[in-house]
Amino acid sequence: MAAAAAAGAGPEMVRGQVFDVGPRYTNLSYIGEGAYGMVCSAYDNVNKVRVAIKKISPFEHQTYCQRTLREIKILLRFRHENIIGINDIIRAPTIEQMKDVYIVQDLMETDLYKLLKTQHLSNDHICYFLYQILRGLKYIHSANVLHRDLKPSNLLLNTTCDLKICDFGLARVADPDHDHTGFLTEYVATRWYRAPEIMLNSKGYTKSIDIWSVGCILAEMLSNRPIFPGKHYLDQLNHILGILGSPSQEDLNCIINLKARNYLLSLPHKNKVPWNRLFPNADSKALDLLDKMLTFNPHKRIEVEQALAHPYLEQYYDPSDEPIAEAPFKFDMELDDLPKEKLKELIFEETARFQPGYRS
Rank of each mutant, 00 (worst) to 15 (best):
I302P: 09
Y30R: 04
D210T: 03
A325N: 14
K344T: 10
L218Y: 09
D318Y: 01
E197L: 02
A7S: 03
F348L: 00
G245F: 04
K300T: 08
V188W: 03
K285S: 13
G169I: 11
L252F: 13
D332N: 01
D88T: 14
K300V: 11
Q62L: 01
E305Q: 13
P58W: 15
S213F: 04
N123E: 10
G32W: 08
H239S: 08
R261T: 05
A327P: 09
Y193I: 02
D149L: 02
L222C: 06
E71G: 10
M38Y: 11
L289F: 09
R135V: 13
I133L: 03
L155E: 06
F279H: 15
C65T: 12
R135D: 13
F183V: 01
H141P: 01
V101Y: 03
E71C: 09
I347G: 05
R261P: 03
L313R: 07
D124A: 01
K285G: 05
G182S: 05
A286R: 06
V214R: 04
P11Y: 13
N123R: 09
I126F: 01
N257I: 00
A286I: 15
M221H: 03
Y312M: 09
G10D: 11
C40S: 01
N262P: 08
F354Y: 02
Q62F: 06
I74F: 00
L157C: 10
S248C: 09
N144L: 06
M293S: 09
Q66T: 12
K55E: 02
F183T: 10
R67A: 14
P280G: 08
L134C: 10
T26N: 02
L134I: 11
G8Y: 09
M13A: 04
E186I: 13
S57D: 11
K270L: 11
S41A: 08
I89T: 11
L289V: 13
R194D: 05
T110N: 03
M199D: 03
L75F: 08
R359P: 10
G8A: 10
A260C: 14
T295D: 06
Y36K: 03
G230Y: 14
I56T: 12
A286Q: 14
I31F: 01
I56E: 11
E250Q: 14
M221A: 06
G169E: 05
G8S: 09
V214M: 02
T63R: 05
Y317A: 13
N201M: 08
A9C: 15
P11D: 08
K207R: 03
M221W: 08
A286P: 14
E71A: 10
I140D: 05
I209G: 03
E341C: 14
L150N: 07
D283K: 15
Q315W: 15
I140T: 15
L157D: 01
K164A: 09
L107D: 02
M199N: 13
I240W: 09
K292D: 09
I165C: 10
V173H: 06
R91E: 10
N224D: 09
L218A: 04
E334T: 14
D106Y: 01
F19L: 00
G16C: 11
A6G: 09
A352N: 12
S41N: 11
I302L: 02
T160E: 06
L155T: 14
M98H: 08
M98D: 07
H269V: 10
K114G: 03
S41Q: 12
F296Q: 02
R50P: 10
G8V: 00
E349Y: 15
V51N: 15
K55A: 07
A5R: 04
D111C: 05
T181I: 04
M38T: 14
E186D: 02
P328L: 02
L76G: 15
E81H: 09
A4F: 15
Q97G: 12
K259S: 12
A260T: 04
L308R: 14
S122W: 09
H61E: 08
T190S: 00
I74R: 02
K272Q: 06
D106S: 13
F19R: 03
C161R: 03
H239Y: 05
I89W: 06
E314W: 15
D100H: 14
V49Q: 09
K342S: 14
Q17H: 01
T206M: 02
F19H: 03
K55P: 03
Q105S: 12
I217C: 12
L69C: 10
P356R: 13
P247S: 05
D88G: 13
K114W: 04
A9K: 13
E345G: 14
S29H: 14
G34L: 05
L234M: 01
V145A: 12
R79F: 09
V14I: 04
A309Q: 14
S320Y: 01
S142V: 12
D111T: 05
L170D: 05
E305T: 15
F129A: 12
R24Y: 13
Y205H: 04
V39P: 04
V145K: 05
V104N: 08
L170M: 01
L28I: 07
N224A: 13
A286V: 12
T26G: 11
L244M: 01
V104T: 13
I324P: 15
F296I: 00
G22S: 15
S41F: 09
P298C: 11
R359K: 01
S153R: 01
E71L: 06
D106H: 12
P268M: 11
E322S: 14
E350H: 15
L234H: 07
R225P: 07
N253T: 06
I84L: 07
Q132C: 08
Y113I: 05
L237R: 05
C65S: 00
L222H: 11
A52Y: 07
E341S: 12
D235S: 07
I211A: 04
Q249H: 01
E341M: 14
F279D: 09
K259A: 04
N297D: 08
S29V: 11
A309V: 13
T351N: 06
F354L: 02
P356Q: 14
T68I: 09
R301G: 04
R70M: 02
A171E: 03
N45D: 08
I243M: 12
S29Q: 14
L134R: 04
F228L: 00
D283S: 14
I302W: 11
A2I: 15
I302S: 08
D337H: 08
V304E: 10
E81N: 14
P311F: 11
N276G: 09
P11T: 01
C166H: 05
S41Y: 00
R70V: 05
A35L: 03
E250G: 05
D210V: 00
L264Y: 08
R67D: 14
H239K: 11
S208D: 12
Y187A: 08
G136Q: 05
K330W: 15
Y316W: 15
I255E: 09
N257V: 09
E197T: 04
V39Q: 03
H120K: 08
K55V: 05
T63V: 14
K203W: 04
E350L: 15
K344M: 00
K138W: 09
E326W: 11
Q355L: 00
G10N: 12
F78S: 05
S213A: 11
T160G: 09
K54D: 04
R50E: 06
D336S: 13
N224C: 09
I133N: 00
Q355P: 15
L278T: 05
D167K: 06
L69S: 11
I302N: 00
M108S: 12
C166N: 07
I255T: 10
G230M: 10
G169K: 05
T159C: 04
C127R: 06
N82L: 07
F296M: 10
N257F: 02
P268S: 01
A174W: 12
L252R: 07
A7E: 13
I83Y: 11
D288S: 13
A286F: 14
L76M: 05
N201H: 06
D88L: 15
H80M: 13
K164Y: 06
I217W: 03
E334A: 15
T185P: 00
T190N: 02
R194C: 02
R79G: 04
I86K: 10
K73F: 05
K114N: 00
P356L: 10
L157M: 05
Y233A: 03
P328Y: 06
T190L: 02
P323S: 05
E81K: 01
F348T: 12
L252S: 12
V14K: 09
A307D: 02
N201P: 04
Q66V: 05
L115P: 10
V173Q: 02
A309G: 08
R135A: 11
D175P: 11
G182I: 03
Y113W: 08
H120D: 11
D210M: 01
A42V: 10
I302V: 06
R91W: 14
S202E: 03
A327E: 09
G16M: 13
L289T: 03
G204I: 07
P356S: 02
H180A: 06
T118Y: 15
P58I: 14
R15A: 08
P339I: 13
H310V: 07
N154V: 02
L289E: 05
R77T: 12
D318H: 10
N82T: 06
M98I: 00
G182D: 09
S208E: 10
K151C: 02
C161A: 10
E334P: 11
K259D: 06
Y358N: 06
L290G: 02
L287N: 09
P268I: 10
E197F: 02
I255W: 08
T160W: 08
L137V: 15
V104Y: 06
